[in-house]
Every structure is written in structure tokens, then in C-alpha cells.
Design a protein around this nucleic acid. Structure first.
Lengths: 113, 113
DNA sequence: AATCAATTAATGAAATTATGTATATGTATT
DNA sequence: AATACATATACATAATTTCATTAATTGATT
């Protein structure tokens, strides 16, 4: 057993996958573009993309032959909310979107032992 | 090579280490207390604590025979700031403390390709 | 010196990851 | 329907990491 958010953290805590995610900030890219941006050979890249897909850090969209990847920005907000729980209690540090998540219960799991 | 924040993410993306971190939210604990809270045998726990120390997610303080662990809350703010970069561009999602980090440059590395 | 809390070292088994090659799938083109 | 292209999956194997134990070590206290 491992827990969904732990899997997400594990998925992003990886040099090449992190580089892939960085290449997707602000723009979607197809696999070929990611391959070019990161220099990882196709089958290996496809594996790493599968890890990112399974952890739901990215979403895909197909346009004809090409598959476009983009960040699941919602999930990143959730993950940031979880990490914020380990930060200072100082209310100024709790972001609006994160605060929303607290009351919505998304990050609640991390408060339970 | 791996990068400091990636190492931090990797360190926390681990079921027992994450449990240790959770047990430290809001209060410091000595090793014996953590051992009791998590049920991990002592030498193994000490190893996991070493990982957390090396990634600077926790700090320690010695009081006589006991070593007390607490969260490095500052670092968690930084990590949250890094993840926020992968979130929606919507300004409402960017927390004050995180915004401060942006202008301070702490999270800048993640913007570079 | 004896004891206690914690860390480090050392070991071997088990699991994960990386890499390369080959194959399969889905779509488009002819 | 055959071919080509982009991407995904399957496999095999080598390399690395992780895990759990046991043992030894350090630092502080009595």
C-alpha cells in the first residue's frame, strides 16, 4: 500500500520525469516534442510518460497521429496543499486555493495518523 | 546528478518516511516517540531519519540522551512553491508566501528548461 | 565503568529501475 | 487494403536501490 499522493510525489521525484513536467509548464507538447526537449529515446520516454499518466500528473489528448500531453494543474494544487500542511502554521503562508482545499477536504488524509 | 528539490521530493515520497513526517506536524518528537508512533524498528527508523536529515526535511536538537526531530517548515514552503509552478496560472492560486518565494528566487530553478 | 538513546556499518535477499530491441496499436495517406 | 508514421507495450537483462537483520559505535548520563 502506498497512497495516491505518495505515488504522485514519487512520480515527480525523478530527474527525467521532472524535466518532462517542466517542459510542459504553460504549454502542451506532443511526444516528439518532449523527446526532442529531453533527449530521452522513444520507448524509454513512453515508459516515463506512462508513469506520469498513471499518477495522473499529466493528461493526454490525441490529435490525429499525435498525442499531446499537458499538466494536470488541479492535482498540483492539491499536492501543494498537502505540503503546506508541513509548513509553518502562520496563516499568511496558507494560500487561498490551498485554504479552499482544506475546507473541501482534499488534503484531509494527510492530517490523519 | 539529481537536484536538491528532487531529492527532497524523493525523500518524502515514501510511505514510512511520510508517516514520520506526519507524526511531526505541529510538534517535535524524539526518536523513541517516533518509533512508537510508526512501529518501525529502531535501526531501520534511524536510516529513514538519516534520509530525512540529508534532504533537510527535518532538523534535530539534542537534549541530554534524546534527539528531538522537527519539520523544516521553511523547506516545505519552498517545495510547495515549486509545485505551485505546475499549477494553473490563475493568480488566485498563488499564495502570498509562495509569491514571496518567486520574487526571492527560491523556486527559480524550476522555471529553467 | 556501566547504561541508555541513537547512529552507523555491514550483510545478503528482494524489488525496482534503466536500457535496448522488438512488436503492437491507432491513425492517416495512397 | 497496403504502407507509413507516432506512440505504446512487451520482453530480456544488467545495474541499482531498497529492506531487514545483526553487530558495532558514538555521545551523553549515572
Amino acid at each position: 500500500m502506498s497512497g495516491a499522493p505518495i505515488d504522485s510525489f514519487k512520480a515527480l521525484a525523478h530527474p527525467t520525469r521532472f524535466a518532462v513536467l517542466q517542459s510542459l509548464i504553460g504549454k502542451e507538447r506532443n511526444v516528439g516534442e518532449i523527446e526532442e526537449a529531453t533527449g530521452i529515446a522513444q520507448p524509454g520516454l513512453s515508459q516515463q510518460l506512462a508513469v506520469l499518466r498513471n499518477s495522473r500528473l499529466v493528461t493526454t489528448r490525441r490529435d490525429a497521429k499525435l498525442v499531446y500531453y499537458s499538466l494536470n494543474t488541479e492535482l498540483f494544487v492539491d499536492l501543494a496543499a498537502i505540503l503546506a500542511q508541513f509548513g509553518p502554521v502562520d496563516d499568511a503562508n496558507i494560500p487561498p486555493a490551498v485554504k479552499r482545499r482544506f475546507t473541501t477536504g482534499v488534503a484531509t488524509f494527510a492530517r490523519m495518523g
